[in-house]
Simulated assay, not measured.
Amino acid sequence: MYQLSDIYKATWRSVILHIILISAFALSIQVAFELIFIYSLIVLLAFLCSRSLCSILMPLIDLDFEERKANILAIASVGGHWIELLRIMPLFKGKSVSFISNNQSLKETVLGYSFHTVPDANKDSKFKLLGCIMKVSAYILFLRPQVIITTGAAPGLLGILIGKILGIKTIWIDSIANAEKLSLSGSIALWLADRVYTQWEHLAVQPKLVYSGNVL
Rank of each mutant, 00 (worst) to 15 (best):
K135V: 00
P145W: 10
I160V: 12
I133W: 08
L157H: 03
K135E: 04
L129W: 00
K135H: 03
G131K: 11
L130H: 12
L141Q: 14
G156F: 08
L161F: 05
G131S: 10
V147Q: 00
I160Q: 06
L161R: 03
C132V: 05
K135Q: 04
P155S: 07
A138E: 12
M134S: 08
G131F: 09
G156P: 11
V136G: 11
I160W: 03
I162Q: 06
A153Q: 07
G159C: 03
L158T: 00
Y139L: 14
C132D: 05
I148L: 10
P155L: 09
I149C: 14
L129H: 02
I149D: 07
I133Y: 11
P155I: 03
G156W: 12
L158G: 02
L158E: 01
L130D: 12
L130Q: 13
F142M: 15
R144G: 12
G159I: 00
I148W: 01
L141W: 13
I160F: 07
L157A: 06
L143P: 04
F142G: 13
G152P: 00
I162V: 08
A138Q: 13
P145H: 11
T150W: 02
L143C: 09
G156T: 08
S137Y: 01
T150Y: 01
S137H: 06
V136Y: 11
T151I: 09
Q146I: 14
S137C: 06
